[in-house]
Nucleic acid binder design. Structure first.
Length: 271
DNA sequence: ATGCGGACCTGTTAGC
DNA sequence: TGCTAACAGGTCCGCA
């Protein structure tokens, strides 16, 4: 679920409640997430202060005294800060209790999320060291994308969803970005010119920044760090609208399957 | 190096 | 109404 805007929304919701606090305890109820949660964490974390909170791609990184907590929300995860006396539900896999009577609760029905500990340089962690640039950074521009796409035969939608090329773009926003850009999702990435990549980059920044401003997209159960859903769903032009009229030209949107992901586009506007 | 399919896990929905 | 299959926001891994 969570793509860049949802992860950013989560970060903004929880960070003010965590920064400067001290960890009182980790209550780990389900260690079988995407990767096993290290059992040593319950002994390691108490007493450590939280002095940093940031996002890298779809990863959340919390700086503690002796290292970083790395959290990924997977497909169905969410994080909230709530009072420490709230009873857990069946998918509430861990709580990070704070010294002020609040806690950070991780909920994830599908358990594709992750909780890991990184002792050394967090940027060198295997999960992070090969990630491409942040799409909202200035280094992510048309020249960069055009250069990376050279010779690539994979569809541009898959190319945009490759975290080694650029981070944070998942299925929803890939569909949206390409609709905004007027680029056909099945077109080979290496057969798109610099001018069209300018449109792709502009759309990427516009769509993602707009979604962040709306608190992300809630399809089913996503809630931000403050427990509220995101409101970008109303702005979606392609995702979830297969068969419905294109908002630009009224032609029916086409829905196909690409790399096992639902892909929606306008056969008239997107070439 | 690149591209593709399968894997992880559970809940919801579509279809018979 | 009930059962089954397909599908869902991610991404790592192994194989061609």
């Amino acid at each position: 679920m969570p793509e860049l805007p949802e992860v950013e929304t989560t970060l903004r919701g929880v960070a003010p409640r965590l920064l400067g606090r001290c960890v009182a305890a980790l209550h780990l109820r389900q260690p079988a997430l995407r990767w096993p949660v290290p059992p040593t964490l319950t002994a390691l974390l108490p007493g450590q202060h939280i002095h940093g909170a940031r996002r890298r791609g779809k990863y959340l990184l919390f700086a503690l005294d002796a290292g970083h907590l790395l959290i990924h929300l997977g497909m169905s995860g969410s994080l909230r800060v709530i009072p420490a006396d709230q009873a857990p539900g069946p998918h509430d896999h861990f709580d990070l209790l704070l010294d002020d009577g609040a806690m950070l609760r991780f909920t994830d029905p599908r358990r594709f999320g992750a909780l890991l500990w990184v002792a050394g340089d967090v940027e060198q962690h295997p999960l992070l060291c090969r990630l491409g640039p942040e799409p909202l950074d200035d280094v992510f521009d048309a020249d960069y994308l055009h250069r990376r796409a050279r010779g690539r035969t994979a569809p541009v939608k898959s190319f945009l969803m490759d975290s080694r090329v650029v981070v944070g773009i998942g299925n929803i926003y890939a569909n949206e970005i390409l609709h905004h850009s007027g680029v056909h999702p099945l077109r080979a990435a290496g057969r798109i010119g610099l001018g069209r990549y300018q449109a792709v980059v502009a759309a990427t920044k516009e769509v993602l920044a707009g979604a962040v401003a709306q608190g992300g997209t809630t399809l089913r159960d996503f809630v931000g760090g403050d427990g509220k859903p995101g409101y970008f769903r109303q702005q979606l032009r392609a995702y979830g609208r297969g068969g419905e009229p294109c908002r630009d030209c009224a032609a029916p949107l086409r829905e196909v399957r690409l790399a096992q992901r639902t892909t929606v586009y306008c056969p008239r506007c997107q070439r």
